[in-house]
């Protein structure tokens, strides 16, 4: 593990957490839509988009210095966080299909990363 790789992994890890909160705020903001275009400018959606942008900047900095086979699957860690937050904040159930589907997606992203490095 070179210091550059550790830096990349940390950046992508933090990006995945920030991005997952972006998704939470997009979901919260979506409940405030009322059919008018202006309702897209609500504080939750603005925060959600800002978190997404922040996350993509960290992600771009992270993937510059590392192996995609390690970093790609770490990006999809964001899906795992999102599953947790959805349960915590929106009382969405963990179901077998969600967990099995997510596990396969993580595995698939891992392979795509292996093929991209």
């Amino acid at each position: 593990m070179t210091p550059l790789l550790i830096r990349s992994i940390l950046l992508v890890f933090v990006a995945s957490i920030i991005g997952s909160f972006g998704a939470v705020y997009l979901k919260k903001g979506s409940a405030m839509l009322n059919g008018s275009l202006l309702s897209f400018l609500n504080s939750y959606l603005i925060l959600g988009v800002a978190l997404y942008l922040g996350s993509s900047v960290l992600y771009a900095l992270g993937v510059k210095g590392g192996d995609l086979s390690v970093l790609y699957p770490m990006v999809s860690l964001g899906y795992v966080w999102t599953l947790l937050w959805a349960r915590l904040f929106f009382k969405e159930a963990f179901t077998q299909q969600k967990i099995a589907g997510l596990a396969l997606i993580l595995l698939g992203v891992f392979f795509v990363g292996l093929g991209s490095s």
């Binding site: 939470v24 979506s30 899906y79 599953l83 959805a86 929106f90 969405e92 969600k98 589907g101």
Partner: peptide, 11 residues
């Protein structure tokens, strides 16, 4: 996201 579950749609 407005009409569906975050945990199902996001992944």
């Amino acid at each position: 996201l407005r009409d569906g579950e975050l945990s199902m749609l996001y992944p």
